[in-house]
Nucleic acid binder design. Structure first.
Lengths: 148, 148
DNA sequence: AAAAACAAGTTGATATGTTAACTATTGTTA
DNA sequence: TAACAATAGTTAACATATCAACTTGTTTTT
């Protein structure tokens, strides 16, 4: 549909920010999905594992926020990761409602391995886009998060 | 974790493009979710409806690509939309495997209404980010799609 | 301190996503 | 043209997402 004959109230398909972000993410993830898959790790599981590499321990609620996984999803996904000995959990003494999650050595090794394999893809992506534009994109995305 | 003492092979949480795109999209969608919800329309349903406003008829497979919904998801979601008389389908004569989907008047009216209500949010977002940066962001996202 | 409000996490019901297998049709090739 | 391959869509099985309700523990109010 042309830009001139569409309804005035209708924002063209190409100008929908959520769709643009979704398509871009899908495009990028196409590069990484085979890697994750080869290690039998889902996107969501990897988000959790990677979040846990940023600290010795993290409260479940904070992991939920970092990974954008809802508490129920996190709760269920954690079970599998625990079963595979990729993470551990313990109850926080100060607040007995809270769980503290940590990544195990095995989990950290897996994240490191996947990270290594992903790095080649990242470098290729940066090569295609250019590091300057890449920085620009990251800055703009941060701005969206902060200002909206 | 500081930038200096993390493993060299590990790309920091903030520099993950997929996460940055996911967070940005989530932030933006927080503005629109209440509107969709008030009309009893899910994100996925709205993506389909809106795709169908861009042409008189579309092949299901094309809607699937436009909306980034997998064929099974599309197939199921369509049933609900048909049941609510928001879309119709007919078999393509030239290719009897294919379904042609169209939006109904009722569906178009719903999209227009949601579009109107969303426009206020879009304007607010543009106001906060600035239309120049907004254009920049759209351009960069398109570039990611094209070059990767 | 008791009551109320709030917060962390889990569970259950239902919807949606994903993969593989399948049917039907169309396109290609030997 | 017969055989094979590819495409469109659906279905089934299973994983994950979502929403509400619930349990337990903590904080705030009165």
């Amino acid at each position: 549909m042309s830009d001139t004959n569409r309804q005035a109230t209708f924002r063209g398909y190409g100008r929908s920010l959520p769709m643009a972000l979704l398509r871009a993410r899908d495009t990028v993830m196409n590069r990484f999905r085979p890697i994750l898959r080869s290690h039998d790790v889902t996107e969501q599981q990897f988000r959790i594992l990677r979040a846990l590499t940023t600290a010795k321990e993290l409260r479940a609620v904070d992991v939920s926020k970092m990974t954008l996984l809802s508490p129920p999803s996190l709760s269920r996904t954690i079970k599998g990761l625990e079963g595979r000995k990729l993470i551990t959990r313990r109850i926080e003494k100060e607040d007995q409602r809270a769980f503290m999650l940590s990544i195990t050595k095995k989990g950290a090794a897996l994240v490191a391995l996947i990270g290594q394999q992903s790095e080649a893809e990242y470098l290729d992506i940066e090569g295609r886009i250019g590091s300057k534009k890449m920085d620009q994109l990251h800055r703009l995305l941060s701005e969206v998060e902060e200002k909206i």
